[in-house]
């Protein structure tokens, strides 16, 4: 066998992988694991951002409330009144729907 033929044979022999049915499965699993990790990291970051924003707002609100107790009291009462009104309206509309169905 001449050197050219030996080179061709050696190139053909070395490193020729057999078709591995497990390889595609390993790729899909690795890709899905990577996606899951990314999603988890994103949701942690999102939750952290929301928590930080909420804490900042709460701190600002408390600071403002300490300086304006009367206005804060009025605000709390107004919010409570508004919530009661909304609750009452929803309750009444639910009752009305039940009555109309009959």
């Amino acid at each position: 066998m001449d050197t050219e033929a030996r080179l061709r044979a050696a190139l053909r022999a070395a490193a020729a992988p057999a078709r591995d049915p497990g390889f595609a499965l390993a790729v899909i699993r690795a890709a899905e694991a990577g996606r899951y990790k990314k999603e988890a990291a994103r949701s942690v970051l999102r939750a952290g951002g929301v928590a930080a924003a909420a804490a900042a707002l709460a701190a600002l609100g408390l600071d403002w409330a300490a300086g304006n107790p009367a206005a804060f009291q009025n605000g709390v009462l107004s919010a409570a009144g508004l919530i009661s009104l909304v609750g009452l309206a929803r309750l009444m509309s639910a009752r009305a729907r039940v009555l109309l169905k009959r």
């Binding site: 595609a24 790729v27 899909i28 890709a31």
Partner: peptide, 13 residues
């Protein structure tokens, strides 16, 4: 993922 697995299978070697 099935489509991608088929692509991987065809070109892995």
């Amino acid at each position: 993922s099935r489509a991608y697995a088929a692509l991987v299978d065809a070109h892995q070697q």
